[in-house]
Each structure stands twice: as structure tokens, then as C-alpha cells.
Computed example of a mutant assay.
Amino acid sequence: MIHEAKATAPFTFDDAAELVANIGILPLAPLIPEHPSLKGLTREEDWHTDTELDPWQWRVRFPGESKAAYGKFLKKKAVLVARDWFPYFAAALGSSLSLKERYDRGLSGREALIVLEIIKAKEGIETRQLRSEAEMKAKEKKTAFDNALNELQGSVDIVISGVRPRLNAAGDKNGWNSTSFETAANWMRESGIEPFAGDKEEAIAWLKARIEPVWSPEAAAWIQKLWAKTK
């Protein structure tokens, strides 16, 4: 079983890709008990350096190279999910109901419904444009907008597809890069990944069979509680 240790040597993207393929789910920061995180496996001095060893850059590279899906899928925290695991992960942790059905039953907010429809129409849309088109640019609507994005990632309806530079009216870079979003279905389609055709229980069984040999008992128990809470 793999546990997190203090990083003393350089940890490369290839190292991370091999690990994600093996354990299936890797949070960016410590989240799952007795389970590694990208933060713990890498050296602090490598972060935000814009070098090949910068893990902050990998969050874009993983989905871009179709090696792993990326998003705030667990407890509103950023997680990488291996491409082979993702269809089962989505079925296990996502809802069996469509967002419209959840909205009609009072299980989802109107803002999430609006945001998802825009993302479906404009796959890969960046945050600032998305917020504008959702008519949530006002300061008092920021929380509702952020909550909608968190909800849609938590239900695995959308993924973070990358970041785009913010440009001013003249087309010059202006400020921090902006996160872009696409539907999970579109990311899988573009990555050549077939969606899982079975039900939630079958997806969980598939994941459990792969988790048990490489996850700690504490980590496995933690995620199984999340599976039990989704509807």
C-alpha cells in the first residue's frame, strides 16, 4: 500500500503519471487519510516555478494529455482521477439523476442548471466568460457562482479542462490565468474514453477491486463513505 512521505528528491510529471495510473485517485493537497497527495510527494520549492518540475502546471497537463481528469470532485478539493478509472469514478460518485431531475426535486440550485447549460454549449469556456454569460458578474453573485461550479464538479458533471491567459481588450495578457471548464462527457469523448454503461453498484465494485490492493484500509473506508452518500 502506498503512503505519503516527505519529498526529498525531485518528483517528475512522469512519476506522478505512473502513480495516478496505479492508485487511480490523487488529490493535489492532503485530503484522504493515509493516502498520498501531490503536495506531499513533491518538493515545496518546485511549486509555482513554471518549470517542468512545477506540479501546479501538471494540473493542466494531465487533462490536456488525457492521462487524468481534474476537478474539485471530492469535498470541494482538487483531485486527479486516472483516465481508466474515471468512467467508474463518475458513475460511483456522480448522481444517477440528471441535473434537471435533481433541480426538479429540489436537490440542486438554479445557478448550477444555468452554468451547466452554458458549459454544454461552449465546451472549454473560461471562468470570466462563463460568469458573464451566466449573468453572475455582480459581486453579490460570486458565492452563488462558485457554489454552482463546486456542485457540478462534485457531481462529476463537469471537469476543469485547463487554464487560459486572461487578455485585455487589446489582446494582451492581463492578470492571472483563468480556469476553463468542460463537461465530463465531452472530456471523455475528446480523450477517447468510453462512458461506463453499468450502474452505480457495478462501478463501485470495479473501483473496490482496484483500490483494495493499493490503498490503505483508512483511505478505502473514507471513499466508500462518499459512495454511500451519493444518490
Rank of each mutant, 00 (worst) to 15 (best):
M1Y: 09
H3G: 07
E4C: 12
K6F: 13
A9S: 14
P10L: 09
T12Y: 04
D14F: 15
D15G: 10
A16K: 02
A17E: 11
L19H: 10
A21L: 00
N22K: 12
N22L: 15
N22M: 12
N22C: 14
I25L: 03
L28T: 14
P30G: 00
L31R: 00
I32Q: 02
P33G: 00
P33S: 03
E34Y: 03
E34R: 06
H35S: 11
K39C: 00
L41M: 13
E44P: 06
E44H: 08
E45K: 14
D50F: 14
T51Y: 01
E52S: 15
L53H: 06
L53G: 09
P55R: 05
W56S: 08
R61Q: 14
F62Y: 03
G64A: 14
K67W: 02
A69Y: 01
Y70G: 06
G71E: 07
K77C: 09
A78Q: 11
L80E: 01
P87I: 07
L93W: 05
L93H: 01
S95A: 07
S95Y: 00
S95D: 08
S95P: 02
S96C: 08
L97H: 13
L99T: 05
R102L: 12
G106W: 02
S108C: 05
G109N: 05
R110T: 02
R110D: 04
E111T: 00
E111I: 00
I114F: 04
I114N: 03
K122V: 10
K122M: 15
E133V: 02
A138G: 13
E140Y: 09
F145R: 02
L149S: 04
L152C: 06
L152W: 02
G154Q: 10
V156A: 12
I158Y: 01
P165G: 03
R166E: 07
D172R: 04
N174R: 05
G175Q: 01
S178Y: 05
S180F: 02
W187V: 04
W187K: 08
S191F: 09
G192E: 04
G192H: 06
I193N: 03
D199Q: 03
D199A: 11
E202D: 04
I204S: 02
A205R: 13
W206D: 10
W206T: 11
W206Y: 15
K208L: 15
A209S: 10
R210S: 01
S216Q: 12
A221E: 13
W222N: 10
I223Y: 09
Q224M: 13
A228H: 13
K229Q: 11
K229V: 09
